[in-house]
Nucleic acid binder design. Structure first.
Lengths: 244, 244
DNA sequence: TAAGTTAGTTGCACAGTATCACTAATTAAA
DNA sequence: TTTAATTAGTGATACTGTGCAACTAACTTA
């Protein structure tokens, strides 16, 4: 059926619509390294990029999903079993070229999971696996334009970590200041001055001490929790002068 | 035609797809105030929100538009005639509730126009008009969820102006430092220290002097242009300590 | 020539981080 | 039971960039 542009714009029922998906970049820190969860594309003739790795995601379900964010949360729980991690939209990418099945648009979110809640092998979804990130990349080839999406998510995460408390969401409820500092160092891939770090964290009232310490083979460390567990804290400056 | 979810996810040709639009928040500074370009919704029975004001935008055209950004640029040129202003994605919003015609998703961009390129009345699109922004809002009621989208765009702009050179895109090619400072003050809705401003701008190597001054009824001002016209510059700090 | 106005500079205070040297508390080894 | 090793935590000073305020500079108009 042929139609003119002006007609199309007045009848939304016959207007052409792009394929619409949501993809979630799920981060966690394992073995001192940032990792991302990737699933295996189904190995059926109907599906493009068979057998390759991809970001968890898929078509918006207009029955199940009230909005884009709940669609992202649904996909996140399918793959990890985790209900309410930190979740933030990165942006959207759409065009004629990114999916061989036609014009498509995807809405990309990123999530931060504490390592303790990261699914092990045999967890909720067994086609999902953690891949370490090195140099803004992952070592396998990704389906669609997911390499680009992943890179954008990493970029956003890194940028924001410079001046916010985001890495706290990579930790369990109780943690030491060294734990927290370590999350920053892993995400930023550089070391941070201990003294300046502590001053900054206390000045921002990011954490409060709890009545516990963590013992070990050396001096025990004070345990802390977030002062406002649901809110991101913004620092007045980035960690070191931002490289332009 | 009824179909199961699992079938649907394997046949993209029969999968249900949301209505997909792109909306553009076009900013300029007129009369010492930040303004947004708003269009009139068509006054036909088929269209929702008849006669109300809305952000310029509309359905993605899968024939004309290679990707989302070129769709945004097309709509921008339709309404303003301007070809290549600063353009940045704000994010995407989608859900069952935002359009009476059904599940829809919109991709929101914002653009910055120099006042000199702002269309006057009788310009390219005469249904478009500039509205001043006060308190993160505009004085008229907007169609759809456009008030929310506009607020998000303003928020993004304000935030980013604190630590980038974005306001430079609101000026013509040649400008004085007072002009530039004034753009910051208008967008941030607060005054900025002249001396600190100049130091910061020079330290970031944002501008370079040209061989001209602007005369007037008082001391002539040195004219400048951007050192790297196509790149945003990031400052090491926000202007005043960020209010948390 | 003086007043008014905007452009541009200088010097000091202050905030927040970098740097580095120090002290503290525990375990394991000597 | 002392000592070394290790990680936790503190303190003192320097440096960077902005806030603030007072100053000088260049032009027009009365």
């Amino acid at each position: 059926m042929e139609m003119t542009q002006s007609l199309a714009s007045f009848d939304p029922h016959v207007i052409e619509r792009p394929l619409t998906t949501v993809d979630v970049v799920i981060f966690t820190v394992l073995d001192q390294r940032l990792h991302v969860l990737l699933v295996l594309r189904p190995d059926t003739p109907e599906e493009p990029f068979k057998g390759m790795r991809a970001l968890p995601g898929g078509f918006v379900d207009m029955q199940k999903d009230d909005d884009l964010e709940s669609c992202a949360r649904r996909k996140l729980q399918q793959k990890t079993g985790v209900r309410s991690p930190y979740l933030e939209q990165v942006g959207s990418w759409g065009g004629i070229k990114r999916d061989p099945r036609g014009w498509s648009a995807t809405h990309v979110y990123f999530a931060l999971l504490p390592a303790t809640e990261s699914p092990e092998d045999g967890a909720p979804s067994s086609d999902a696996k953690w891949f370490p990130i090195e140099n803004q990349r992952v070592s396998v080839n990704l389906a669609f334009d997911h390499a680009k999406l992943l890179e954008a998510a990493i970029q956003r995460l890194r940028n924001k970590v410079e001046y916010t408390s985001l890495p706290a969401y990579l930790l369990p409820e109780e943690f030491t200041l060294s734990d927290l500092q370590h999350m920053y160092e892993v995400v930023l891939e550089r070391s941070i001055e201990k003294s300046a770090f502590r001053t900054r964290v206390f000045a921002a009232n990011l954490v409060e001490p709890i009545d516990k310490v963590r013992a070990g083979p050396n001096r025990p460390a004070q345990l802390y929790r977030l002062s406002q567990p649901k809110e991101i804290v913004y620092f007045p400056r980035t960690f070191s002068p931002r490289k332009v």
